[in-house]
Write a protein that binds this DNA or RNA. Sequence first.
DNA 1: ATTGTTTTCCAAAACGTTTTGGAAATTAAA
DNA 2: TTTAATTTCCAAAACGTTTTGGAAAACAAT
Lengths: 339, 339
Amino acid sequence: MNIKKLAEKLQLSITTVSRGLGGYSDVSEATRKKIIKFAKKYNYSPNPNASNLASRKTNTLGFVIPLYGLNSNTLNQASFFEFISGMSNKINSENIQFIMKFANTIDEEKKAYDNLIKVEKVNKVILHNLKKNDPRIKFLQKNKINFVGWGRTQGRINYPWVDLDNETSTNLIMQYLYDRNHRNIAFINVDDKYNFAYQRKQGYLKFLKKNKIKFKKENYISVSYEDPDQVALVIEKKILNNSKITAIICSTEYSAAGAIKACNKANKKIGIDISLITFDGNIVNFITSPSLTAITHDRKILGSKAIEILTSETKIKNNSHYLAKPEIIERGSVLTLKK
Amino acid sequence: MNIKKLAEKLQLSITTVSRGLGGYSDVSEATRKKIIKFAKKYNYSPNPNASNLASRKTNTLGFVIPLYGLNSNTLNQASFFEFISGMSNKINSENIQFIMKFANTIDEEKKAYDNLIKVEKVNKVILHNLKKNDPRIKFLQKNKINFVGWGRTQGRINYPWVDLDNETSTNLIMQYLYDRNHRNIAFINVDDKYNFAYQRKQGYLKFLKKNKIKFKKENYISVSYEDPDQVALVIEKKILNNSKITAIICSTEYSAAGAIKACNKANKKIGIDISLITFDGNIVNFITSPSLTAITHDRKILGSKAIEILTSETKIKNNSHYLAKPEIIERGSVLTLKK
DNA sequence: ATTGTTTTCCAAAACGTTTTGGAAATTAAA
DNA sequence: TTTAATTTCCAAAACGTTTTGGAAAACAAT
């Protein structure tokens, strides 16, 4: 079924059918309804190729996933799926076309963006893993393509974005531990060149400051993703050997795994001898007994908000943004200390 | 840049440029080279919308990801990314367009396939999580759309597929354990309605038979994905309480996590008091000390083979297939018993 | 030199839409 | 009732390709 046949069935011109479906005001409500009815009946939907071609524009969302950075920066697998899941509802209901590309290298990533803009002519983009002064931003702004950042950079931001509220997260955790009388809290983070790690560090530091707790260098460590065993070793040496530390915050599931290993090795029972709280941790959170208390964010909403911003009727404001609120899931790995 | 302008630059007709780029034999080698040179120079690539429209066909691969089944059937997140990663090289080099859809429900999944075929007019599909007598197969065969299964069903198969060699995997593991003098080996599987689980069970059973070891009902348990804590409990009760069992095979990362928890609770040291070997387990494999010995498959190749089958010049044979070979990564959670 | 083949090229039609610029029909205003 | 304004519709052009059905040019055979 194509528009021509549908127009014949309806005894209307092709133009009217097209405009009716497009919701233009120059077709009466009555005929519009009839057109929609027939379109449904004959299961018609416009050929996107013809449509894009004729209108000289697309309604396509482009999205490049940097495979090379998976699990070694802001993108982890679980968060990807949640984000996508949140997006997909909106995408389906808004009838947006959706092109996703996967890049195994930085070079491929560059090519992928080029292709999206120049060949596929997408009009919306989700930008992941933004860097400071990211060239993609200028590129997109120059080409007047709507985009929203998944994650954001530091400092002044002149583009719309969605992100986890990382600073609040660590603040929340610190408060949670503080309320349970922990005063020497170790924070195992990753390199703060990653924004999420930087933000989490800020939350940690600000809480200390607010409560007039001195920052102890030895309580904060930054580990790499690369060698998990190394992580366990570092934790064992620097954290577990420090008898003052009563609680550990892990910034990633990997470091939580490392912490668990270190604790096992040092024969410290999590939730009894030492408290542990981790970000996310879908898999590791139930290995300990009692299971790990964790902090999570609703990343589904992040995905749907991103689409919302991109499709908002009004011209996208450069300060639209959304912060996913954190939530602590209590499971029992945090001990309440005596005063 | 479009084909018309490029033709002007080349002082050739649009037809010749199009056919030259398409590699047709009715344009001389000399002009073809010149065309390609100019196309590169002016950074021209055909508008896919116009191209699809004019040729009445596409070169598009469709792929529906069932989000609802994530981590609760054959699809887990890590395998998805590996598969995709393997695909993407081929996709880029073969200049295939690629549409991926995500379905949160079975209903959405159905709609997604419909959309791919009828609206997007894809000519290639990757089918995931195949069921016996899967209606999608008939649907695609009827519409003469090339497809390849990621995973396969049991029994006679009349379509091309790629899959893990699950039967060999368990066979390999069993041999590995047997060589180290384990005779009472527990296998923690998931419901064998999932084909991969069924195949793994077959490998386990066949090994027993071949080596004339009696199958002991109490050594085989099937656990669900839903409640990880429950898994740990079952393992503790049924496996760890059975003093004859010297080694455990875990079919999924989740059950390995459950096993670790159970061992911790029962105070059994993995790699010392009991041996453990798991499928995959990117995250859990380094929690224990020594780290978990695991069996993995190269899922990247699975992805690239899938594309290879779909793009093979010759008409796709219904018996093309590829089995990813397993490999044991020794880490130290398996003990060699004394004879 | 003529004819037949093969190679190399091209004009025009087609793909299925959207958009433009107006025409016809209806309603409102005078 | 006539004119003006508004509403509702439509024919034709355009989008950037591919494909069809030859035509022209080059080469080969006689």
